[in-house]
């Protein structure tokens, strides 16, 4: 049941709300390009730039705007990382996933009920264009294999590993480190259950790999994956990406 709780005193929420541009009653547009157009009509680039100016130093914004980041996997980790990086104004995101949104994804991934059944690459675009319709998003609906790693991610200075199966995670990290010498890899490893939040950490492994997670809790252990801990790990990955971008020329 829909409920909006009213406060007893000074309970006039309308009073302080500035006149805004309202969203369509129901956002039923499926084509991400249409979503992008609609969002750009609602919010001008200048308006969004001014908001960024108010929040981030110019130099930081420019670095974020010029950055190129790839995300492999758009599940609990990848969908959260993508939204966080879009909110940060990362200029170009490559988003790769072969799968479609399933009901079982709703417990921790960014997707909403209307996305069920849709390819994750398409669903994430709908979401990202609503977060920031002025960034460059490239999607590839494909399964990552040792044979296509270089074609997909070659040339990307930063690649986020955001798969869920351990053999796939290991494969991607191994192949990226072996085949893409210019890429730094940020990976997620161990975030199942509801264990200690502070157990999730970021550690450097060799020169070009950062591993985020508790490194031990396996989803196979029957503890499941929950939104908070998956988002914690995703935030570790996204924050490492931002750190790497800001360090790049220094």
């Amino acid at each position: 049941m829909e409920q909006e709780r009213k406060l007893s005193k000074d309970a006039d929420p309308e009073k302080d709300v500035q006149e805004g541009k309202s969203l369509p009653d129901q956002l039923q547009i499926e084509d991400p390009e249409e979503v992008k157009k609609q969002m750009q009509q609602i919010l001008s680039k200048e308006e969004l730039d001014r908001a960024f100016d108010a929040r981030f130093p110019k130099e930081m914004q420019q670095k974020f705007r010029g950055a190129r980041v790839a995300i492999a996997g758009l599940g609990g980790l990848g969908s959260n990382i993508a939204v966080m990086l879009a909110r940060s104004g990362i200029g170009h995101l490559l988003l790769v996933d072969f799968d479609t949104v399933d009901v079982t994804n709703l417990n921790r991934q960014m997707y909403l009920v209307p996305h069920v059944g849709m390819p994750k690459t398409r669903a994430i675009l709908q979401i990202l264009y609503q977060v920031n319709p002025y960034l460059d998003y490239e999607t590839v609906q494909a399964k990552v294999t040792p044979e296509n790693v270089k074609e997909l991610f070659g040339g990307y200075p930063i690649v986020c590993e955001a798969f869920d199966k351990p053999d796939q995670k290991a494969m991607l990290v191994r192949e990226l480190l072996g085949q893409c010498p210019e890429s730094t890899v940020v990976s997620g490893n161990g975030m199942a259950g509801v264990g200690d939040s502070n157990g999730i950490r970021t550690a450097k492994f060799g020169n070009r790999l950062y591993v985020c997670g508790d490194r031990t809790t396996d989803v196979g252990g029957g503890v499941g994956l929950t939104a908070p801990r998956v988002a914690l790990c995703a935030a570790h990955e996204a924050n490492k990406v931002l750190q790497l971008i800001l360090q790049e020329d220094s």
Partner: peptide, 10 residues
């Protein structure tokens, strides 16, 4: 040698 072991979940 460094061995990095991956667990499932994402």
């Amino acid at each position: 040698v460094e061995v990095l072991r991956f667990v499932g979940g994402g």
